[in-house]
Nucleic acid binder design. Sequence first.
DNA 1: ACGGAACCGGATAGCCCTTTCCGGTTCGGC
DNA 2: GCCGAACCGGAAAGGGCTATCCGGTTCCGT
Lengths: 222, 222
Amino acid sequence: MTTGPQQPDAQPLRSDAERNRGRIVAAARRVFERDGLGASMASVAREAGVGIATLFRHFRTKEDLIAAVFADRMDAYVTAVDDALDDPDPWAGFTGFIEAVCAMQAADRGFADVLTATFPAAEALEQRRAAAYHGFLELIARAKESGHLREDFASQDLVLVLIANAGVVNFAGDTVPDAWRRLVALLIQSFQAPAHGPLPDPPADDALYEAMLRAGPGAGPA
Amino acid sequence: MTTGPQQPDAQPLRSDAERNRGRIVAAARRVFERDGLGASMASVAREAGVGIATLFRHFRTKEDLIAAVFADRMDAYVTAVDDALDDPDPWAGFTGFIEAVCAMQAADRGFADVLTATFPAAEALEQRRAAAYHGFLELIARAKESGHLREDFASQDLVLVLIANAGVVNFAGDTVPDAWRRLVALLIQSFQAPAHGPLPDPPADDALYEAMLRAGPGAGPA
DNA sequence: ACGGAACCGGATAGCCCTTTCCGGTTCGGC
DNA sequence: GCCGAACCGGAAAGGGCTATCCGGTTCCGT
């Protein structure tokens, strides 16, 4: 595991350390949600009311902090897929999932950044991402089978939606908080069968992964 | 005029100054095209083979440099609208314009950033933006009248497309250079009549402008 | 209630950014 | 070919970022 200091079994922390750790994670959650992953570690420390050194002692790098903060959002991500698979209507499940995920991006700019990047060092995140992706493939299959989803829809199109939506969310953020809804509605309608025409080929999976890697280490957009 | 030093009539520059100014603009064009507006002034100076001070003597701020570099791209932007208006097929003109502009974004990451920001101090840019927007309104009207464009398409949707596409271009950039084509194709199909369903209301114009303002002064994304 | 390990946080290093300052150099009119 | 004005570019100021160092403090077992 790469998440060194925050292993559940590592040996109990002293009470003050435990308390500070909780404060830091909670503060980071608030700060990242508001400002995206571009928020500085100093701002997190300030929000938490601890010194910078304390923050870096608990999380050796910013990426470690991100992994700790967004583990449960990634759980919600997986849960959203499962819920969608439980929907008896495959098309409603499919569209509901996309809307739900994009809504999560709009509600948490940090999470929007997380979904469009890859953190190979943070296994906790990547395993959940893989699980969700796997479920989404099933969602695609069922929606196509039901005849509501266009046949040439590709799994890579989800990444495209997430990137586009992250762009709108990071851009419009607080000023135009509902702009993303219209974009997502448009995209969903473009996915619906019958298609209005053919499409260019989707990008290659490994190339997309490569691009998400580049977005990882560095911080999110300004 | 806010473009102080680069006025055409200001009084002729000395030959070496004139030469350096040309080098700087050409270098900035290359650097911004490759790296987006986030590129540093130092990298521009290095590419131009001049000192940093020389760069800042010719362009008091980064924004001044941006305005000088992208004036002609904005001309191409206006030209694209005019060409589209010349198309006898309103729908072909409409879709061709969107594709052309998005292609310009993909070919020049700096321009992609310029299109999704506003620089109130750079009148040269803003006047052209306004002209293009005005032409686009006419393009919308004709395309709706022809029955190919959905009735609830709003002019703000162009901004949405530009932002979403800039997100994909800045994200996928060199790694997945054609990813944007699929996104744009999808969006165009979603604009085509008959619509697959209703849409949420478009964002308010002034709110969008406000958001573009925020994206202006600061540099582009990483 | 005491001693040492664990923990704290401010100051600091090192890097990148935009913008300014200033001593040295080059141009170009005479 | 000389000389002043215009111009050059490196160095530095001022700010932000991640990450580390170290002297002082707090916890907790005994």
